[in-house]
Nucleic acid binder design. Structure first.
Length: 634
RNA sequence: CGGGGCGUAGCGCAGUCCGGUAGCGCGUCUGGUUUGGGACCAGAAGGUCCCGGGUUCAAAUCCCGGCGCCCCGACCA
């Protein structure tokens, strides 16, 4: 260490740390994360954060897409320390995995970056942490906070330990790690195939949009004004100072018109459509782009809401309103199919109310899923934009009859936020549970041996099994690391969500079988011959089971025909989806939000409506104009 | 913008009140023994104690000033 030279004292007896302790606020706005720290209780757990969750919804409609962020938060997980509770056996979490994660998150001491955080709250307590107890200290690898204890913290733990993402030094922005990015790639591939099958083509439009473009559609600008990032200069200039002040934007490089970093691309895309569309023969124009988006969010959460996130935005132009409406509905259906068949996440589809629709749209349709904490997550949106943008950007076409008409547009999108939905729909206290169709690793083979001879045997069998599964098109890993015991590998792969594990030990080799263990529970032996078929079948069953389980849970947390009083209690209690009549007035909507925290998630499509249409508004008692589904939302 | 708290090894923290040249757990690296649900022993590496000034023979510790982060509220919704 070292100290520095010093001199004079001032002194005063002050206790505590002095300087720092104060914060400066100034900017401090709460941003992202939420979690707070929580006092830990002695001994057992230590740090944990809590946070509340974030409730905030997104702005507009498309909010769905937004993701969260990270930056904030969290701190690290708990780590070992004291004895943890010995949870039941299985409960503990995998060690290996943790490793990387957490750490990163919190970043370096400097603190700066984003990381870390959190600790703050806790502090004080010296008490906690007790001395290392002898027990199974080892085992204390980090655990995942149980869902029942703190859902938000559990979510962060799962994301971090599954190595889906990590906090970055950039506030509000996260890093999607390889395992998480693979999930996104699998999602992209499935969706892209569906988009192509419905006639759409991919293209790529600029990240930067002239600020004036946003202003062309009044409602649209207003919807995004508070969260756009601007590029105002084109170069830096050395100041001669050191540290963070060493460079500054060169005043002489200021742009005459700032560029907006796209919060969505309607404006730039329709500006191009105006150029490409001349006649009715050019319609419909069906396009999609996969890209990143920036929306300056304060409170961010990993995947659910981050300043920058990845998504896909489809944009189409049609000759008639009916065609545009059909397109918007069709894509909503595509999303639903994807979310149910691939993500195994049941959704309710429907229309958004005026106050929740996308800024600039005529109508917004959305998909809403119920998470395990009984809060709704908007998982995707599809908009019928009417002629709003066509008029703003002058997108006209000549009709067969020779007239000139404005086109009808649609836009629809889903984002990396779906990964957050995937996590909150299926995962458990042992970590991520990933539906087979989207699992980066669908099967992991864990060999078990004592002697070198056995090692050679089980690895030999493992290689053969792996080859057979690869041939069957299954994503499989053979974990032959010899630095970890089999049990440690189980925890690690469970945390990462691998649906099926095959254990191969000397006894199995002798018996010509392998032991199969499902992430969703249950271990059974399987013959080596025909293992490919057995695995395929198991994966299909797991996929189906996850959807059924999620559906059952959603229905168990949905209520219909409740009175106003019951509704209030429902929202105050466990929460979930509440179906009921709605008078359509923004006042009722606002009051409900204020008094219960719930909002209208959607005015459900026919298939989700109650057998008997509600006659009166569940809140004010006036005649109902539409049935609505309320819930507290992300 | 108000309130509160925090910044020490990759991560979690102790040490700060009462100045004496930095410690614990986990993780990491080596070697050996292990391996059917988170291994053990031994050894090792790893820190500009957020930054800048000041006081003092001596500063993680005291004083002043910055920066950064977290939580609550506000805002948003």
């Amino acid at each position: 260490m070292w100290r520095r030279p010093l001199r004079r004292p001032i002194e005063g007896p002050r206790r505590r740390r002095s300087p720092r302790a104060r914060v400066r606020h100034g900017r401090c706005r709460p941003r992202r994360t939420l979690e707070g720290a929580r006092p830990r209780r002695p001994g057992v757990d230590q740090a944990r954060r809590l946070f509340n969750s974030g409730e905030r919804r997104g702005r507009g409609p498309d909010a769905a897409a937004r993701a969260p962020a990270a930056g904030s938060g969290r701190r690290g997980r708990v780590r070992p320390s004291s004895g943890g509770d010995p949870q039941a056996a299985g409960a503990r979490r995998g060690a290996g995995s943790g490793t990387g994660l957490d750490r990163g998150a919190r970043r370096a001491g400097g603190g700066r970056g984003g990381g870390t955080r959190s600790q703050g709250g806790h502090r004080g307590a010296g008490a906690h942490r007790e001395a290392p107890r002898t027990l199974p200290l080892m085992a204390q690898a980090q655990k995942i906070t149980p869902r029942a204890k703190d859902f938000s913290e559990w979510y962060n733990d799962v994301v971090m330990q599954a190595e889906l993402a990590d906090y970055s030094p950039v506030r509000g922005c996260m890093v999607i790690r390889p395992h998480g990015y693979r999930v996104w790639e699998l999602m992209q591939q499935a969706l892209d195939d569906m988009f192509k099958a419905t006639g759409h083509q991919n293209a790529y439009f600029p990240l930067f949009i002239p600020m004036s473009f946003l202003a062309k559609e009044a409602e649209h600008v207003e919807g995004f004004a508070k969260e756009v990032a601007l590029v105002t200069h084109t170069r830096l200039k050395a100041t001669g100072k050191t540290g963070a002040q060493a460079v500054m934007p060169d005043p002489e490089s200021a742009l005459e018109e700032p560029l907006v970093v796209r919060p969505t691309s309607e404006t730039i895309i329709y500006a191009m459509f105006a150029k490409w569309i001349q006649s009715y023969r050019d319609l419909p124009l069906l396009m999609n782009q996969w890209c990143n988006i920036v929306r300056w969010e304060f409170r961010t959460r990993l995947f659910l809401r981050t300043t920058e996130f990845l998504w896909q935005e489809g944009h189409t132009a049609h000759a008639t309103e009916a065609e545009a409406e059909a397109e918007a509905r069709q894509m909503l259906g595509v999303y639903r199919r994807f979310q149910e068949d691939w993500m195994a996440m049941p959704v309710i589809t429907g229309r958004k109310t005026e106050s929740e629709k996308f800024a600039g749209a005529l109508r917004t349709y959305a998909l809403e899923a119920l998470m395990q904490d009984n809060k709704a997550l908007q998982a995707g949106t599809s908009h019928n934009l009417g002629q709003n943008f066509a008029k703003a950007f002058n997108v006209q076409y000549q009709t067969a009859a020779g007239g000139l008409e404005y086109v009808w547009n649609t836009s629809w999108g889903v984002s990396t936020r779906m990964i957050g939905g995937l996590v909150m729909t299926h995962s458990d206290d042992n970590g991520l549970v990933c539906p087979p169709k989207l699992a980066p690793v669908q099967v992991v083979i864990v060999p078990i041996w004592k002697s070198e001879e056995e090692r050679g045997q089980v690895l030999g069998v493992g290689d053969k099994v792996k080859a057979e599964l690869v041939k069957a098109g299954i994503r499989v890993e053979l974990d032959s690391r010899d630095s970890l015991k089999p049990g440690a590998k189980y925890f690690e792969w469970e945390a990462k969500g691998v649906p099926l594990r095959l254990e191969i030990g000397p006894r199995d080799v002798a018996a010509g079988q392998v032991m199969t263990a499902r992430r969703t529970g249950g271990k059974t032996p399987a013959r080596l011959d025909g293992i490919g078929g057995v695995v395929r079948k198991s994966l299909d069953e797991i996929q189906a089971t996850l959807l059924q389980t999620a559906k059952g849970r959603r229905e168990a947390h949905s209520v219909r025909g409740v009175t106003k009083q019951q509704f209030v209690e429902f929202m105050k209690g466990a929460g979930g989806f509440a179906y009921g009549g709605f008078c359509g007035s923004p006042e009722c909507e606002a009051q409900i939000k204020q008094q219960t925290g719930a909002t209208v998630r959607v005015l459900p499509d026919p298939e989700f409506r109650s057998a008997e249409a509600p006659k009166t508004c569940l809140w004010c008692g006036k005649p109902s104009v539409a049935e609505a589904v309320w819930a507290q939302a992300y």
